[in-house]
Write a protein that binds this DNA or RNA. Structure first.
Length: 644
RNA sequence: GCCGACAUAGCUCAGGGGUAGAGCAACUGAUUCGUAAUCAGUAGGUCCUCGGUUCAAUUCCGAGUGUCGGCACCA
């Protein structure tokens, strides 16, 4: 006699066990049509499942957030059926919903290509139109393994084999097709709807392990309705226009070429942007109590051996030798920490010097795998806004809190109001004892609690010497990039023999906090370009103002205006070409110049300027000195502005 | 590194077994103009590299390099 409590608090009684379908119908025909699945005591299950006991039930309809995930999951199943019907012999593996869509990994000798997608998608639409119900079946574990093995589906068999023995094995049938699946599903393939699209193909290792076979992955997107799908596709198209590689070329910021693969050639405007950010960071860090240093590019392998990097990363290091000294092997530094420890180790350190925050805009080289390179976001030559904080164990919390505050303020100034934080704990391959890791992880967790940092756990992804916080920013098309980081390290000070004299007169090991805010300038600037789509706020813009005369009679005055702005430290260009003002306005607008100062005879006579802002077609006519003062104030970096 | 796609003028791209085109940019000349393209003309290409097939390859095939989308990697 289950009593079913609905979200509005009302209770319905049934004579015996009932399915969700029955309950929904009992409530009303509208809900019976709309209900796709239900939550029984908070657990999402098939609508067709039987409710035995008293329960709180919520129905999931198309407009609920859970529905979107189910649509994507079910679309993946439809994809798998379509593929197996068109390409017999293809094995299915896994096909989860993901952000904005889904994918499915198939095992097939011949990988799928883009040309295969239209036929597959057409077959999918037939399957959806057929609207076969999703039927849940509970199987005996061994029967299920035997079943899939008999069908040549060895990946599915392997999946079942690896499920915990306590797990209920469920298969879902949709018409003729059947698949191992935990569920839940919607009522039938028709609930998928038509708002889906196959997007791309890619290789992907079985179980994400490069030692395994490479599977053929098909990505797709799926939405509640055509309107949502269209909006998403339009967003993707617009995001492509923000691509830092495209904008970098269009705005003449940088280029890359084959002869220096993975290294950036910064052009004058790009380098100005870089220097603006660098100068800002330098001021911020100095105000934050950091001491800037500079350490060598080429360092003997002995130091890398001592730090442990040689063993783990030597295949990713650029090695340099000279004929005159055949016994010497140098490496271009792939990171700065061992060098910073060398500075720490000069002389005898006192506990009074801690925490010591040692910063370097460290130029590093890493031989990244060719497939990892990506515009200026993932390169082989980059500059970190690196720092190492040498401190005592009980300073970890305070330093972390302080770091998070600095990072948040900087991200905010640079246009990132929100960001994600991941907590990565001990990896399988690591240095240091478990006791040390326990200590480091606990210290970092305590610090997060103290700093009020909310994080998602990223198990096993820590550095080999310690756990880390990763501060993640998103690029234009939604890819996540680690930028900031904070890593607790008990190992390297030990390996490199760092010590200080404590209050007790004895020698102690300092803890090292590795930290970066931007991560690498290259990556961060790439994201910054995409964030603003090249339309930088005035203080960051590489060309802040273009002064454009309307007639050549105003050229001298235009130069005077430019000089007045330059005297305030602004980056100003003049456009004295014999072109119509329309053409000048158009060109500089397309080049994302934030302010165009137009001067004609009228302005020259009255000593005024007509300011036109990027993205606006209005103009503001101001007296020259007023305009200069206003623009100079606006172009002041946020950390140098007078407090409001 | 692995899977797939792509590589044509400075840029964006079209084309195609018989020696290559557009728009924009560049250059020259004219135009002095009030807020998103003034007009006319000129010039510009080992069609990524190497090899093969062919009477003939930029086009077809193979290898290499690079780029792009993923996967793996990311101290």
């Amino acid at each position: 006699m289950p009593a079913i409590t609905l979200p509005d608090g009302s209770v319905r009684h049934f004579a015996g066990p009932v399915t969700g379908t029955t309950v929904a119908a009992d409530i009303g025909p509208g809900l019976a049509r709309a209900a796709l699945a239900m939550k029984v005591d908070g657990r999402l299950v098939d609508l067709s499942r039987t409710i035995e006991d008293d329960a709180a039930v919520t129905f999931v309809t198309r407009k609920d957030p859970e529905a979107l995930e189910m649509i994507r999951h079910d679309t993946a199943h439809v994809l798998a059926e379509a593929v197996q019907s068109l390409f017999p012999g293809t094995q299915v593996t896994i096909g989860p919903p993901i952000e904005n869509g889904f994918y499915y990994d198939f095992a097939r000798n011949e990988p799928f290509t883009l040309e295969d997608l239209p036929a597959i998608e057409a077959r999918m639409r037939e399957i959806v139109a057929a609207n076969a119900p999703f039927m849940r079946e509970v199987w005996d574990r061994n029967d299920a393994i035997a079943f899939f093995q008999a069908r040549g589906e060895r990946y599915k068999a392997e999946l079942i084999q690896d499920l915990p023995v306590t797990e209920t094995i469920t298969l879902y049938r949709q018409g003729e097709w059947i698949d191992l699946c935990r569920g839940p599903h919607m009522r039938g393939t028709g609930d998928v709807g038509t708002a889906f699209k196959l997007q791309k193909v890619a290789g992907a290792y079985w179980r994400g392990d490069h030692r395994n076979a490479m599977l053929s992955r098909i990505y797709g997107t799926a939405w509640r309705d055509q309107k949502e799908l269209d909006a998403y596709l339009k967003m993707l198209e617009e995001a492509e226009q923000r691509d830092h590689r495209r904008i970098g070329r269009a705005m003449d910021l940088f280029h890359m070429q084959q002869e220096a693969q993975g290294s950036v050639f910064w052009h004058p405007k790009g380098w100005r942007l870089y220097r603006t950010v660098e100068a800002y960071m330098r001021r911020r860090q100095e105000a934050g109590g950091y001491d800037e240093v500079r350490t060598p590019q080429l360092v003997d392998r002995a130091l890398w051996e001592a730090s442990g990097h040689w063993e783990k990363f030597r295949h990713h290091m650029f090695i340099a030798t000279v004929e005159e000294e055949p016994d010497v092997t140098l490496a271009l530094k792939p990171m700065n920490c061992p060098c910073h420890v060398q500075i720490f180790n000069q002389g005898l350190r006192s506990y009074r010097e801690l925490p010591w925050r040692m910063a370097e805009f460290g130029s590093c080289h890493r031989y990244e795998p060719s497939g990892a390179l990506h515009g200026i976001m993932r390169v082989r030559a980059f500059t970190q806004d690196d720092a190492h904080i040498f401190c005592t164990e009980d300073q970890i919390t305070g330093e972390t809190v302080r770091f998070v505050a600095l990072l948040s303020a900087i991200y905010k100034d640079l246009g990132f109001e929100t960001f994600r934080v991941k907590f990565s704990d001990r990896p399988d391959m690591r240095a240091g004892t478990d006791a040390v890791w326990d200590q480091a992880e606990a210290a970092l967790k305590r610090a997060c609690a103290e700093a009020g940092v909310e994080y998602e756990l990223n198990p096993g992804e820590g550095a080999f010497y310690g756990p880390k916080l990763e501060f993640v920013l998103r690029d234009a098309i939604g890819r996540d990039w680690q930028c900031g980081t904070l890593q607790v390290d008990f190992v390297l000070p030990e390996r490199l023999g760092a010590e200080y004299i404590g209050e007790d007169g004895a020698r102690h090991r300092p803890v090292m906090l590795h930290r970066a805010i931007l991560g690498s300038f290259e990556r961060f600037l790439g994201i910054l370009i995409e964030q603003y789509a090249g339309r930088f706020p005035l203080w960051l813009a590489p060309v802040q103002v273009v002064v454009a005369p309307i007639v050549s009679d105003a050229n001298d005055y235009a130069e005077e205006v430019a000089a007045a702005l330059r005297a305030q430290g602004m980056n100003v260009a003049t456009d004295l070409r014999n072109e119509k003002i329309n053409a000048k306005v158009r060109e500089h607008s397309l080049a994302h110049v934030p302010v165009i100062a137009v001067v004609g005879r009228r302005e020259a006579e009255n000593r005024q300027v007509s300011l036109r802002r990027l993205g606006s077609d209005g103009q503001e006519v101001l007296a020259l000195d007023v305009a200069v003062a206003a623009l100079a104030a606006e172009a002041t970096p946020p950390d140098l502005r007078p407090a409001a």
